[in-house]
Computed example of a mutant assay.
Amino acid sequence: MELEKIVEQHESQLQQQSKEIKQHSKEIARLSDMSVEIQKQMSEGLARVDESNRFLREQNTRQSEQNAQILQAVIKGNESSDEHQFQLKLLDKTNFWKLTIGIGGSAAAIFAALTEIIKLFFK
Rank of each mutant, 00 (worst) to 15 (best):
residue 79 E to D: 11
residue 20 E to F: 08
residue 56 L to C: 06
residue 71 L to C: 09
residue 74 V to N: 13
residue 3 L to Q: 13
residue 11 E to C: 07
residue 55 F to K: 14
residue 6 I to A: 04
residue 73 A to W: 05
residue 108 A to R: 02
residue 66 Q to D: 04
residue 18 S to V: 00
residue 123 K to D: 15
residue 5 K to A: 13
residue 79 E to V: 06
residue 102 G to W: 06
residue 26 K to T: 12
residue 20 E to D: 00
residue 70 I to F: 05
residue 82 D to I: 12
residue 53 N to T: 03
residue 120 L to C: 12
residue 102 G to D: 09
residue 1 M to D: 12
residue 71 L to V: 12
residue 72 Q to G: 10
residue 59 Q to W: 05
residue 70 I to Q: 08
residue 54 R to G: 02
residue 49 V to P: 02
residue 112 A to W: 04
residue 33 D to A: 00
residue 94 T to S: 09
residue 53 N to Q: 11
residue 72 Q to K: 09
residue 67 N to Y: 12
residue 9 Q to K: 05
residue 11 E to R: 15
residue 91 L to P: 01
residue 44 E to A: 08
residue 89 K to F: 15
residue 91 L to H: 04
residue 22 K to N: 04
residue 110 I to R: 01
residue 45 G to H: 11
residue 96 F to I: 03
residue 65 E to H: 01
residue 19 K to F: 06
residue 33 D to T: 11
residue 52 S to V: 11
residue 51 E to S: 10
residue 96 F to A: 02
residue 49 V to H: 00
residue 11 E to I: 02
residue 121 F to T: 12
residue 81 S to P: 02
residue 88 L to I: 05
residue 93 K to V: 05
residue 6 I to C: 04
residue 6 I to G: 09
residue 34 M to V: 10
residue 31 L to F: 04
residue 28 I to A: 01
residue 43 S to V: 07
residue 45 G to K: 07
residue 109 A to E: 04
residue 111 F to K: 03
residue 35 S to E: 14
residue 18 S to H: 00
residue 18 S to T: 06
residue 68 A to D: 01
residue 84 H to K: 14
residue 2 E to W: 08
residue 7 V to T: 03
residue 67 N to E: 15
residue 74 V to M: 04
residue 1 M to S: 13
residue 111 F to M: 11
residue 23 Q to M: 13
residue 7 V to G: 09
residue 36 V to G: 08
residue 21 I to A: 14
residue 17 Q to S: 03
residue 59 Q to I: 13
residue 48 R to S: 06
residue 9 Q to W: 06
residue 48 R to F: 12
residue 117 I to N: 09
residue 120 L to Y: 13
residue 18 S to D: 07
residue 104 G to W: 02
residue 9 Q to L: 08
residue 114 L to T: 11
residue 107 A to G: 09
residue 54 R to I: 12
residue 22 K to W: 09
residue 7 V to M: 06
residue 36 V to C: 03
residue 60 N to G: 14
residue 61 T to N: 14
residue 79 E to K: 03
residue 94 T to K: 03
residue 44 E to R: 03
residue 3 L to P: 09
residue 69 Q to K: 13
residue 31 L to E: 04
residue 2 E to A: 02
residue 76 K to G: 06
residue 121 F to W: 12
residue 32 S to L: 15
residue 51 E to K: 05
residue 17 Q to W: 09
residue 116 E to K: 11
residue 9 Q to Y: 07
residue 21 I to F: 14
residue 88 L to D: 03
residue 108 A to P: 05
residue 42 M to Q: 14
residue 51 E to D: 01
residue 8 E to S: 04
residue 90 L to G: 00
